[in-house]
Amino acid sequence: MSVRQLPQTLALQRQLIQQLADGKTHSGEALAQQAGISRAAIAKHISQLQQIGLEIFAISGKGYRLAQPLQLLDVTQMKQWQAPGSPEVLLQHLTDSTNTQLLKRLQDGQSLQKGQVIVAEAQSAGRGRRGNDWYSPFGSNLYFSIYWRLEQGIQAAMGLSLVVGIAIAKLLERRYQCPLKLKWPNDLYVNHKKLGGVLVELAGQTHADCDVVIGIGLNIQMPTGGESKINQPFTDLMQEVNSQIDRNQLVAELQHQLIQTLKHFEVYGFTDFISEFNQRNEFAEQTVQLTGGSEPQIGVCKGVDHQGGLILQQGGQLKSYFGGELSLRVKQ
């Protein structure tokens, strides 16, 4: 596919998704007439949409329909929910990674406003910690990245992923009465299953201004078959709450919550967030194992210290551990 064809293809596919979003059955002939292409071309586009995670059923003799109605992200609707003066939200149909897109803008010398957000309907190269893939099916979840700048330098980012987790937890608790737990250093849990994760990426110097890109992946309504793509127990908001999830409202409210939380973090640092993390600590008082360092560390999880380090009780002593390569697991 040529570069010239790509935007036209994406526009046509978005048109198809908008037509199918009501969850009703649409004939291939009607879709072809509306798009001005052949039924064979429609079938090809449907196949491509299925490959990016859309559950579309092909019903012999009738046409196509989505497994369930779909609410598309819409910048106009987001603006209705945004707090006054909020930076704009950029929306992409399909991208490699929302974090990558913000980092690319920084590398290209673009000036970004603190609180600038990019969201996408799907990611082809979504990332988790330690280079792990992040399963990003179309229109099912929230793929969200926000830009921030820390004038105090990289050292001021200690504990930042935990602060972001707390901000998300407070919003979901307030909006949906959904009690979140946090797994150090960056995972969101509900009922002992993973709901989402945070990926903080930094660009700057130790004692100079530091650009920060914060990526958030949040499961909203995972499609059937997600189990085959994810290697751990997971859940989504639709399973956990008794209300409909408006993704456009959620994007706007998450942006506002993060801006307010990050402003507080800039002034007071991580100290003000210690008790909030410890109240939501998924593995509080459990014997856990830290892996990824030179050797596994086993101890009782006692929460976090004033820098966001994980405190383990080992042999009667309390020790703090840091480092982006550490992963936390319950000791079996």
Rank of each mutant, 00 (worst) to 15 (best):
G23W: 00
G23N: 10
G23S: 04
K24R: 14
K24V: 06
T25Q: 05
T25K: 04
H26N: 01
S27C: 02
G28L: 04
G28M: 04
E29Q: 13
E29D: 05
L31T: 01
L31I: 04
A32Q: 06
A32G: 01
A32C: 02
Q33R: 05
Q33F: 02
Q34G: 08
Q34L: 09
Q34A: 12
A35I: 01
A35T: 05
G36W: 01
G36K: 04
G36A: 05
I37C: 08
S38Y: 03
S38M: 10
R39C: 11
R39N: 09
R39I: 11
A40L: 07
A40P: 00
A40H: 06
A41Q: 12
A41Y: 02
A41F: 02
A41G: 02
A43S: 15
A43P: 01
K44C: 12
K44R: 15
H45N: 13
H45P: 05
H45A: 09
H45C: 04
H45L: 10
I46E: 05
S47Y: 09
S47D: 14
S47P: 02
Q48R: 15
L49M: 14
L49H: 10
Q50V: 10
Q50C: 14
Q50M: 12
Q50G: 15
Q50T: 14
Q51E: 15
Q51M: 15
Q51Y: 04
Q51N: 13
L54P: 08
I56G: 07
F57L: 14
F57M: 12
A58E: 13
I59H: 10
I59K: 13
S60T: 15
S60K: 13
K62I: 00
K62Q: 13
K62P: 01
G63S: 00
G63Q: 03
G63W: 00
G63L: 02
G63H: 00
G63Y: 01
Y64H: 11
Y64S: 02
Y64W: 07
R65M: 10
R65Q: 14
R65V: 02
R65N: 11
L66K: 07
L66A: 06
L66T: 05
A67T: 01
A67W: 07
A67F: 10
Q68Y: 11
Q68D: 01
Q68M: 03
P69F: 07
P69R: 03
L70N: 07
L70K: 05
L70H: 08
Q71A: 09
L72V: 11
L73P: 04
D74M: 09
V75I: 09
V75L: 06
V75N: 02
V75R: 07
T76Y: 08
T76S: 12
T76M: 03
Q77Y: 09
M78L: 12
M78F: 03
M78P: 07
M78S: 08
M78W: 08
K79Q: 15
Q80S: 13
Q80G: 07
Q80H: 11
Q82R: 11
Q82I: 01
A83C: 06
A83Q: 15
A83I: 06
A83Y: 09
G85W: 06
P87R: 09
P87I: 03
E88V: 09
V89W: 05
V89P: 02
V89A: 10
